[in-house]
Design a binder for these strands. Sequence first.
DNA 1: CGCGTCACTTTTAATTCGCAAGTAACTTCC
DNA 2: GGAAGTTACTTGCGAATTAAAAGTGACGCG
Lengths: 116, 116
Amino acid sequence: MHDDSSPLCTRFLAAADLLGRRWTGVILRILMDGPCRFGELTERIGTISERVLSERLKDLEAEGIVERHVDPGPPIRSEYRLTQKGQAFWKVIDELGKWAERWVDVKPAPRKRKSA
Amino acid sequence: MHDDSSPLCTRFLAAADLLGRRWTGVILRILMDGPCRFGELTERIGTISERVLSERLKDLEAEGIVERHVDPGPPIRSEYRLTQKGQAFWKVIDELGKWAERWVDVKPAPRKRKSA
DNA sequence: CGCGTCACTTTTAATTCGCAAGTAACTTCC
DNA sequence: GGAAGTTACTTGCGAATTAAAAGTGACGCG
């Protein structure tokens, strides 16, 4: 039998697992444009629940992809920004964007999972 | 009000939503190596449940990314292969792979979501 | 003080996922 | 010629993830 499989390296699995969680790609994409605050992230994404945004941000921080900066100035403000590891992700996001631009046609209900 | 955000084009959202479902990236990555049958996909992924694999394959087919070819030869065999739209995705997978290679360090429990 | 903002948490309900078993169409074995 | 195996899925059901919405705590304003 032909050599049947490349065992799918663990690193790739981890990366795919990361991106395989809902909203991760979108969050990263927004952060690519520059640092962003929690509320701003919520607004720009529009349909994410704060509970999940909070969770994703923690995951990303734990992975060393995002950094949280708390500005204790009078009105407390926190800002999320990409680390070097996170910045390095831009190529992936960029290619995904290009693919989407070229191949995705605007569907009636893209955000609802069960739509079709 | 200042124009506060690039509204995150719908196409990107759709693409991110696609990749944001568990296993999608891994399935695509395997299919990049060539057509694959259901059982073979199950084996190569290792920890995916057939229920979800079946679901993802249907999603991907509905999106026109994967094509299903049924070979009604004596032992029925179905084969999944990428369409042109799916092939075009290789750059995304490739960049993801490169990022993973460079930035992901082998963690103790990469597949279990709740591990950390 | 009461109200509003910001950044999250907590609660509760709806989805999705994993695991095991079942279905269906053949093939092989005895 | 019928019990058992292969391949490709589907189904049931408990467990984990996500959504939606209300709550918490720290300010700042009037």
